[in-house]
Design a protein around this nucleic acid. Structure first.
Lengths: 195, 195
DNA sequence: GTCTATAAGTAGATAGAC
DNA sequence: GTCTATCTACTTATAGAC
Protein backbone atom coordinates (compact mmCIF):
# COMPACT_ATOMS: atom_id res chain seq x y z
CA UNK A 1 0.00 0.00 0.00
CA UNK A 2 1.23 3.46 -0.90
CA UNK A 3 1.48 5.77 2.05
CA UNK A 4 -0.26 9.11 2.28
CA UNK A 5 1.95 11.89 0.97
CA UNK A 6 3.98 13.37 3.83
CA UNK A 7 3.45 10.37 6.07
CA UNK A 8 6.63 9.20 7.79
CA UNK A 9 5.66 7.62 11.09
CA UNK A 10 8.44 5.06 11.22
CA UNK A 11 11.27 7.51 10.69
CA UNK A 12 9.82 10.61 12.32
CA UNK A 13 9.29 8.89 15.67
CA UNK A 14 12.95 8.15 16.34
CA UNK A 15 13.91 11.54 14.97
CA UNK A 16 11.68 13.27 17.51
CA UNK A 17 13.34 11.37 20.35
CA UNK A 18 16.81 12.09 19.00
CA UNK A 19 16.09 15.79 18.56
CA UNK A 20 14.61 16.05 22.05
CA UNK A 21 17.61 14.27 23.58
CA UNK A 22 20.05 16.49 21.77
CA UNK A 23 18.28 19.73 22.65
CA UNK A 24 17.55 18.76 26.27
CA UNK A 25 21.22 17.90 26.73
CA UNK A 26 22.42 21.19 25.22
CA UNK A 27 19.95 23.65 26.71
CA UNK A 28 17.98 21.85 29.41
CA UNK A 29 14.42 20.52 29.41
CA UNK A 30 12.75 23.69 30.67
CA UNK A 31 14.62 25.90 28.20
CA UNK A 32 13.64 23.87 25.13
CA UNK A 33 10.27 24.44 23.46
CA UNK A 34 8.23 21.96 21.47
CA UNK A 35 8.67 24.31 18.51
CA UNK A 36 12.45 24.01 18.74
CA UNK A 37 12.20 20.23 18.76
CA UNK A 38 9.84 20.33 15.79
CA UNK A 39 12.20 22.63 13.89
CA UNK A 40 15.10 20.26 14.53
CA UNK A 41 13.05 17.36 13.17
CA UNK A 42 11.75 19.43 10.25
CA UNK A 43 8.03 19.35 11.05
CA UNK A 44 5.55 21.75 12.62
CA UNK A 45 4.96 21.71 16.38
CA UNK A 46 1.54 20.11 16.16
CA UNK A 47 2.95 17.04 14.41
CA UNK A 48 5.02 16.13 17.50
CA UNK A 49 1.84 15.14 19.31
CA UNK A 50 1.50 12.15 17.00
CA UNK A 51 4.53 10.73 18.82
CA UNK A 52 4.18 11.87 22.39
CA UNK A 53 1.17 12.85 24.50
CA UNK A 54 3.13 15.75 26.02
CA UNK A 55 6.58 17.18 26.69
CA UNK A 56 6.93 15.42 30.05
CA UNK A 57 6.51 12.00 28.42
CA UNK A 58 9.22 12.89 25.94
CA UNK A 59 11.64 13.47 28.83
CA UNK A 60 10.53 10.49 30.85
CA UNK A 61 10.73 8.06 27.92
CA UNK A 62 14.27 9.20 27.18
CA UNK A 63 15.35 8.71 30.77
CA UNK A 64 13.60 5.40 31.25
CA UNK A 65 15.04 4.15 27.97
CA UNK A 66 18.51 5.12 29.13
CA UNK A 67 18.17 3.39 32.48
CA UNK A 68 16.65 0.27 30.93
CA UNK A 69 19.54 0.10 28.49
CA UNK A 70 22.03 0.55 31.32
CA UNK A 71 20.57 -2.25 33.42
CA UNK A 72 20.15 -4.56 30.41
CA UNK A 73 23.76 -4.02 29.34
CA UNK A 74 24.97 -4.60 32.87
CA UNK A 75 22.94 -7.81 33.13
CA UNK A 76 24.74 -9.31 30.14
CA UNK A 77 28.21 -8.40 31.45
CA UNK A 78 30.35 -11.28 32.79
CA UNK A 79 30.20 -11.78 36.58
CA UNK A 80 33.53 -13.11 37.86
CA UNK A 81 33.59 -14.72 41.29
CA UNK A 82 36.59 -12.65 42.35
CA UNK A 83 35.58 -9.28 43.86
CA UNK A 84 38.62 -7.50 42.42
CA UNK A 85 37.85 -8.74 38.91
CA UNK A 86 34.18 -7.83 39.42
CA UNK A 87 35.09 -4.31 40.48
CA UNK A 88 37.40 -3.88 37.50
CA UNK A 89 34.62 -5.12 35.22
CA UNK A 90 32.13 -2.69 36.73
CA UNK A 91 34.54 0.23 36.49
CA UNK A 92 35.39 -0.39 32.85
CA UNK A 93 31.75 -1.08 31.97
CA UNK A 94 30.54 2.11 33.63
CA UNK A 95 33.07 4.34 31.89
CA UNK A 96 32.59 2.77 28.48
CA UNK A 97 28.80 2.77 28.66
CA UNK A 98 28.63 6.38 29.80
CA UNK A 99 31.18 7.73 27.33
CA UNK A 100 29.23 6.13 24.48
CA UNK A 101 26.07 8.17 25.15
CA UNK A 102 27.01 11.50 26.71
CA UNK A 103 23.71 13.23 25.88
CA UNK A 104 21.58 10.55 27.57
CA UNK A 105 23.87 10.58 30.61
CA UNK A 106 23.70 14.34 30.89
CA UNK A 107 19.92 14.46 30.59
CA UNK A 108 19.39 11.56 33.01
CA UNK A 109 21.53 13.28 35.59
CA UNK A 110 20.49 16.91 35.18
CA UNK A 111 16.77 16.65 34.52
CA UNK A 112 15.66 14.54 37.48
CA UNK A 113 14.00 17.54 39.09
CA UNK A 114 11.89 18.15 35.98
CA UNK A 115 10.19 14.77 36.27
CA UNK A 116 6.75 14.49 37.83
CA UNK A 117 6.85 12.76 41.24
CA UNK A 118 5.67 9.43 39.81
CA UNK A 119 8.15 9.49 36.97
CA UNK A 120 10.93 10.51 39.36
CA UNK A 121 10.19 7.55 41.61
CA UNK A 122 10.45 5.17 38.66
CA UNK A 123 13.80 6.51 37.49
CA UNK A 124 15.10 6.67 41.04
CA UNK A 125 14.26 2.99 41.52
CA UNK A 126 16.23 2.03 38.43
CA UNK A 127 19.18 4.12 39.53
CA UNK A 128 19.23 2.44 42.92
CA UNK A 129 19.14 -0.99 41.31
CA UNK A 130 22.27 -0.06 39.38
CA UNK A 131 24.01 1.28 42.50
CA UNK A 132 23.13 -1.91 44.32
CA UNK A 133 25.18 -3.85 41.76
CA UNK A 134 28.28 -1.97 42.78
CA UNK A 135 27.50 -2.09 46.47
CA UNK A 136 27.14 -5.89 46.23
CA UNK A 137 30.62 -6.13 44.74
CA UNK A 138 32.07 -3.97 47.50
CA UNK A 139 30.34 -5.97 50.23
CA UNK A 140 31.63 -9.23 48.78
CA UNK A 141 35.14 -7.82 48.66
CA UNK A 142 34.96 -6.60 52.24
CA UNK A 143 33.63 -9.99 53.36
CA UNK A 144 36.47 -11.70 51.49
CA UNK A 145 38.99 -9.39 53.14
CA UNK A 146 40.32 -7.96 49.86
CA UNK A 147 38.65 -4.55 50.21
CA UNK A 148 38.78 -2.19 53.18
CA UNK A 149 36.13 0.52 53.08
CA UNK A 150 34.64 2.51 55.94
CA UNK A 151 31.09 2.38 54.58
CA UNK A 152 29.99 0.42 51.52
CA UNK A 153 27.05 2.70 50.68
CA UNK A 154 29.10 5.89 50.75
CA UNK A 155 31.94 4.23 48.88
CA UNK A 156 29.45 3.12 46.23
CA UNK A 157 28.22 6.67 45.73
CA UNK A 158 31.74 8.09 45.80
CA UNK A 159 33.01 5.65 43.17
CA UNK A 160 30.03 6.23 40.88
CA UNK A 161 30.40 10.01 41.22
CA UNK A 162 34.08 9.76 40.33
CA UNK A 163 33.48 7.52 37.34
CA UNK A 164 30.52 9.45 35.96
CA UNK A 165 32.58 12.63 36.21
CA UNK A 166 34.58 11.40 33.24
CA UNK A 167 31.73 12.54 30.99
CA UNK A 168 32.34 16.17 31.94
CA UNK A 169 35.78 16.33 30.37
CA UNK A 170 36.27 13.42 27.94
CA UNK A 171 36.11 14.29 24.26
CA UNK A 172 36.40 11.78 21.42
CA UNK A 173 39.57 12.33 19.44
CA UNK A 174 41.44 13.79 22.39
CA UNK A 175 44.73 12.78 23.96
CA UNK A 176 43.44 9.50 25.43
CA UNK A 177 41.23 6.73 24.09
CA UNK A 178 38.52 5.09 26.16
CA UNK A 179 40.65 2.08 27.12
CA UNK A 180 43.36 4.35 28.50
CA UNK A 181 40.82 6.33 30.48
CA UNK A 182 39.36 3.11 31.88
CA UNK A 183 42.80 2.05 33.04
CA UNK A 184 43.55 5.36 34.75
CA UNK A 185 40.25 5.31 36.65
CA UNK A 186 40.55 1.62 37.49
CA UNK A 187 43.94 2.32 39.02
CA UNK A 188 42.37 4.92 41.31
CA UNK A 189 39.34 2.80 42.22
CA UNK A 190 41.46 -0.27 42.91
CA UNK A 191 43.73 1.60 45.29
CA UNK A 192 40.90 3.58 46.95
CA UNK A 193 39.14 0.42 48.18
CA UNK A 194 42.24 -1.72 48.73
CA UNK A 195 42.69 -3.54 52.04
CA UNK B 1 15.82 60.66 57.56
CA UNK B 2 12.58 58.74 57.46
CA UNK B 3 12.32 56.40 54.51
CA UNK B 4 9.51 56.47 52.00
CA UNK B 5 6.69 54.16 53.03
CA UNK B 6 7.25 50.68 51.58
CA UNK B 7 10.92 51.34 50.86
CA UNK B 8 13.22 48.52 51.98
CA UNK B 9 16.24 48.55 49.70
CA UNK B 10 18.74 47.25 52.22
CA UNK B 11 16.75 44.20 53.22
CA UNK B 12 14.95 43.46 49.96
CA UNK B 13 18.17 43.15 47.95
CA UNK B 14 19.58 40.19 49.88
CA UNK B 15 16.14 38.63 50.01
CA UNK B 16 15.89 38.70 46.22
CA UNK B 17 19.23 36.92 45.89
CA UNK B 18 18.26 34.35 48.54
CA UNK B 19 14.90 33.65 46.92
CA UNK B 20 16.47 33.30 43.48
CA UNK B 21 19.13 30.91 44.80
CA UNK B 22 16.58 28.80 46.58
CA UNK B 23 14.21 28.59 43.62
CA UNK B 24 16.95 28.07 41.01
CA UNK B 25 18.32 25.21 43.12
CA UNK B 26 14.91 23.55 43.52
CA UNK B 27 13.45 23.98 40.05
CA UNK B 28 16.21 25.17 37.75
CA UNK B 29 16.91 28.62 36.30
CA UNK B 30 14.83 28.18 33.14
CA UNK B 31 11.83 26.83 35.05
CA UNK B 32 11.67 29.73 37.52
CA UNK B 33 9.89 32.96 36.58
CA UNK B 34 10.59 36.43 37.84
CA UNK B 35 7.04 36.40 39.21
CA UNK B 36 7.82 33.33 41.33
CA UNK B 37 10.92 35.00 42.74
CA UNK B 38 8.92 38.12 43.50
CA UNK B 39 6.23 36.08 45.26
CA UNK B 40 8.87 34.37 47.41
CA UNK B 41 10.25 37.78 48.43
CA UNK B 42 6.79 39.23 48.94
CA UNK B 43 6.88 41.98 46.30
CA UNK B 44 5.50 42.42 42.80
CA UNK B 45 7.55 41.33 39.78
CA UNK B 46 8.36 44.87 38.67
CA UNK B 47 10.08 45.64 41.97
CA UNK B 48 12.77 43.02 41.28
CA UNK B 49 14.24 45.26 38.60
CA UNK B 50 15.37 47.68 41.27
CA UNK B 51 17.89 45.01 42.28
CA UNK B 52 18.91 43.34 39.05
CA UNK B 53 18.94 44.52 35.43
CA UNK B 54 17.65 41.15 34.26
CA UNK B 55 17.24 37.49 35.14
CA UNK B 56 20.59 36.48 33.67
CA UNK B 57 22.44 38.87 36.01
CA UNK B 58 20.61 37.34 38.95
CA UNK B 59 22.05 33.94 38.01
CA UNK B 60 25.50 35.20 37.16
CA UNK B 61 25.86 37.22 40.37
CA UNK B 62 24.92 34.17 42.44
CA UNK B 63 27.47 32.00 40.67
CA UNK B 64 30.25 34.55 40.71
CA UNK B 65 29.60 35.22 44.38
CA UNK B 66 29.86 31.52 45.12
CA UNK B 67 33.11 31.10 43.23
CA UNK B 68 34.62 34.23 44.77
CA UNK B 69 33.75 32.96 48.22
CA UNK B 70 35.24 29.56 47.40
CA UNK B 71 38.54 31.01 46.24
CA UNK B 72 38.69 33.51 49.10
CA UNK B 73 38.08 30.79 51.68
CA UNK B 74 40.67 28.58 50.08
CA UNK B 75 43.20 31.42 50.04
CA UNK B 76 42.97 31.78 53.82
CA UNK B 77 43.37 28.04 54.46
CA UNK B 78 46.72 26.87 55.87
CA UNK B 79 49.24 25.63 53.28
CA UNK B 80 51.44 22.91 54.78
CA UNK B 81 54.69 22.08 53.00
CA UNK B 82 53.93 18.36 53.11
CA UNK B 83 51.88 17.21 50.06
CA UNK B 84 49.98 14.61 52.06
CA UNK B 85 48.94 17.17 54.66
CA UNK B 86 48.06 19.61 51.87
CA UNK B 87 45.87 17.03 50.17
CA UNK B 88 44.11 16.19 53.43
CA UNK B 89 43.53 19.89 54.01
CA UNK B 90 42.11 20.36 50.52
CA UNK B 91 39.85 17.30 50.85
CA UNK B 92 38.41 18.37 54.19
CA UNK B 93 38.07 21.99 53.07
CA UNK B 94 36.24 21.01 49.89
CA UNK B 95 33.73 18.77 51.64
CA UNK B 96 33.05 21.20 54.48
CA UNK B 97 32.71 24.23 52.21
CA UNK B 98 30.36 22.46 49.80
CA UNK B 99 28.18 20.86 52.46
CA UNK B 100 27.68 24.26 54.07
CA UNK B 101 26.01 25.76 50.97
CA UNK B 102 24.24 23.01 49.02
CA UNK B 103 21.99 25.37 47.04
CA UNK B 104 24.87 27.48 45.73
CA UNK B 105 26.83 24.34 44.83
CA UNK B 106 23.88 22.88 42.99
CA UNK B 107 23.17 26.05 41.03
CA UNK B 108 26.83 26.64 40.18
CA UNK B 109 27.13 23.12 38.85
CA UNK B 110 23.81 22.69 37.06
CA UNK B 111 23.22 26.10 35.53
CA UNK B 112 26.48 26.62 33.66
CA UNK B 113 24.73 26.12 30.34
CA UNK B 114 22.25 28.90 31.11
CA UNK B 115 24.99 31.51 31.34
CA UNK B 116 25.68 33.78 28.40
CA UNK B 117 29.03 32.97 26.71
CA UNK B 118 30.82 35.86 28.43
CA UNK B 119 29.47 35.00 31.84
CA UNK B 120 30.29 31.34 31.29
CA UNK B 121 33.90 32.19 30.47
CA UNK B 122 34.22 34.15 33.71
CA UNK B 123 32.85 31.35 35.90
CA UNK B 124 34.88 28.76 34.02
CA UNK B 125 38.04 30.73 34.71
CA UNK B 126 37.34 30.79 38.44
CA UNK B 127 36.57 27.08 38.45
CA UNK B 128 39.88 26.31 36.72
CA UNK B 129 41.76 28.41 39.24
CA UNK B 130 40.29 26.27 42.01
CA UNK B 131 41.15 23.03 40.20
CA UNK B 132 44.68 24.28 39.71
CA UNK B 133 45.07 24.43 43.49
CA UNK B 134 44.46 20.71 43.74
CA UNK B 135 46.54 19.88 40.70
CA UNK B 136 49.47 21.78 42.22
CA UNK B 137 49.25 19.66 45.35
CA UNK B 138 49.18 16.47 43.30
CA UNK B 139 52.17 17.57 41.20
CA UNK B 140 54.16 18.40 44.30
CA UNK B 141 53.36 15.00 45.79
CA UNK B 142 54.35 13.20 42.61
CA UNK B 143 57.61 15.18 42.45
CA UNK B 144 58.31 14.30 46.09
CA UNK B 145 57.61 10.64 45.38
CA UNK B 146 54.75 10.34 47.90
CA UNK B 147 51.94 10.19 45.29
CA UNK B 148 51.70 7.92 42.26
CA UNK B 149 49.10 9.06 39.74
CA UNK B 150 48.94 8.29 36.01
CA UNK B 151 47.84 11.82 35.06
CA UNK B 152 47.61 14.77 37.45
CA UNK B 153 44.92 16.60 35.44
CA UNK B 154 42.59 13.62 35.24
CA UNK B 155 43.23 12.74 38.86
CA UNK B 156 42.36 16.30 39.82
CA UNK B 157 39.04 16.11 38.03
CA UNK B 158 38.32 12.63 39.38
CA UNK B 159 38.98 13.65 42.98
CA UNK B 160 36.88 16.80 42.70
CA UNK B 161 34.01 14.85 41.11
CA UNK B 162 34.15 12.30 43.91
CA UNK B 163 34.24 14.93 46.66
CA UNK B 164 31.54 17.16 45.18
CA UNK B 165 29.31 14.09 44.85
CA UNK B 166 28.88 14.17 48.61
CA UNK B 167 26.36 16.98 48.15
CA UNK B 168 23.97 14.64 46.32
CA UNK B 169 23.37 12.40 49.31
CA UNK B 170 24.45 14.17 52.53
CA UNK B 171 21.65 15.47 54.71
CA UNK B 172 22.13 17.41 57.96
CA UNK B 173 20.94 15.41 60.91
CA UNK B 174 21.61 12.07 59.25
CA UNK B 175 23.73 9.14 60.38
CA UNK B 176 27.08 10.90 59.96
CA UNK B 177 28.34 14.35 60.82
CA UNK B 178 30.53 16.39 58.49
CA UNK B 179 33.79 15.44 60.24
CA UNK B 180 33.01 11.74 59.84
CA UNK B 181 32.20 12.22 56.17
CA UNK B 182 35.46 14.12 55.68
CA UNK B 183 37.39 11.25 57.22
CA UNK B 184 35.72 8.61 55.03
CA UNK B 185 36.44 10.55 51.85
CA UNK B 186 39.96 11.45 52.93
CA UNK B 187 40.65 7.74 53.45
CA UNK B 188 39.62 7.04 49.84
CA UNK B 189 41.52 10.00 48.38
CA UNK B 190 44.66 9.20 50.34
CA UNK B 191 44.72 5.62 49.13
CA UNK B 192 43.72 6.45 45.54
CA UNK B 193 46.78 8.65 44.97
CA UNK B 194 49.21 6.73 47.20
CA UNK B 195 52.61 5.71 45.80
C1' DG C 1 0.68 12.05 9.33
C1' DT C 2 1.23 16.75 8.70
C1' DC C 3 -0.45 21.10 8.12
C1' DT C 4 -2.48 25.83 9.60
C1' DA C 5 -4.86 28.26 12.94
C1' DT C 6 -5.99 29.07 17.41
C1' DA C 7 -7.02 28.79 22.38
C1' DA C 8 -5.57 30.10 26.88
C1' DG C 9 -2.00 31.14 29.51
C1' DT C 10 2.72 32.79 30.92
C1' DA C 11 7.29 34.80 29.94
C1' DG C 12 10.74 38.95 30.64
C1' DA C 13 10.84 43.55 30.91
C1' DT C 14 9.12 48.56 31.05
C1' DA C 15 6.17 52.96 32.11
C1' DG C 16 4.28 55.84 35.03
C1' DA C 17 1.47 56.68 39.42
C1' DC C 18 2.30 57.14 44.20
C1' DG D 1 11.12 51.58 46.31
C1' DT D 2 6.97 49.46 45.17
C1' DC D 3 2.80 49.29 42.90
C1' DT D 4 -0.49 48.39 38.83
C1' DA D 5 -0.95 47.99 34.14
C1' DT D 6 0.78 46.81 29.96
C1' DC D 7 3.70 45.52 25.74
C1' DT D 8 5.39 41.96 22.93
C1' DA D 9 6.59 37.51 22.46
C1' DC D 10 6.38 33.06 23.42
C1' DT D 11 4.45 28.69 25.77
C1' DT D 12 1.89 23.89 25.59
C1' DA D 13 -1.61 21.74 23.57
C1' DT D 14 -5.74 21.06 20.56
C1' DA D 15 -9.08 21.29 16.34
C1' DG D 16 -10.02 20.47 11.98
C1' DA D 17 -8.61 20.73 6.89
C1' DC D 18 -6.14 17.97 3.67
Amino acid sequence: MARTAGSHSDITGPRVAQAALRLFARHGYAAVSMRQIAAEVGVQAGALYNYTPDKQSLLFDLMRGHMDELLAARATAPAPGDPVASLEGFTRFHIRFHLERPDAVFVSYMELRNLTPDNFATIEGLRRAYEDELEGILRAGVAAGVFAVADTKITTLAVIAMLTGVTTWYRTGGRLNVAQVETIYWDMVRKAVAG
